[in-house]
Amino acid sequence: METVIGLFNYWIVIVLMMAGFYIVIAQENMIKKMVGLSIFQVAVFVFYISMSNVFGGTAPIAAEGFTLYSNPLPHVLILTAIVVGVATTALGLALIVRIKEEFGTIEDDRIRDMEEHGEESEA
């Protein structure tokens, strides 16, 4: 039981990661692939934040009467990663909008078909 509680966060993190991974490799719609990537990303964030947590610890803002704090370092890494993540997601979405303009579809397999049959494949 203690092992289950102690490792439960990591197991769910892995479930979330694999859900995102499945979307990226098995589904063709590019917007959905971006959602899958962001699920994967959040899974990594939850993993880091879970590792930084200390039982009985408080948020890492120094205050009178507290001695036990969570580890601030993963918080810093993830805080910046979230904002960078949305900026790169925006870049990916911008590329998707351009792909739609150029190919008329955002389904990965149809674009691949077009390129193989050489219709309108010039970018």
């Binding site: 964030f45 934040i49 879970s50 930084s52 947590n53 610890g57 408080t58 948020a59 890492p60 803002i61 969570s70 993963p74 918080h75 993830i78 805080l79 979230i82 904002v83």
Partner: peptide
């Protein structure tokens, strides 16, 4: 999980 800054950003 006491990561208030991260929660705010998310």
């Amino acid at each position: 999980l006491t990561a208030v800054d991260v929660a705010f950003t998310e």
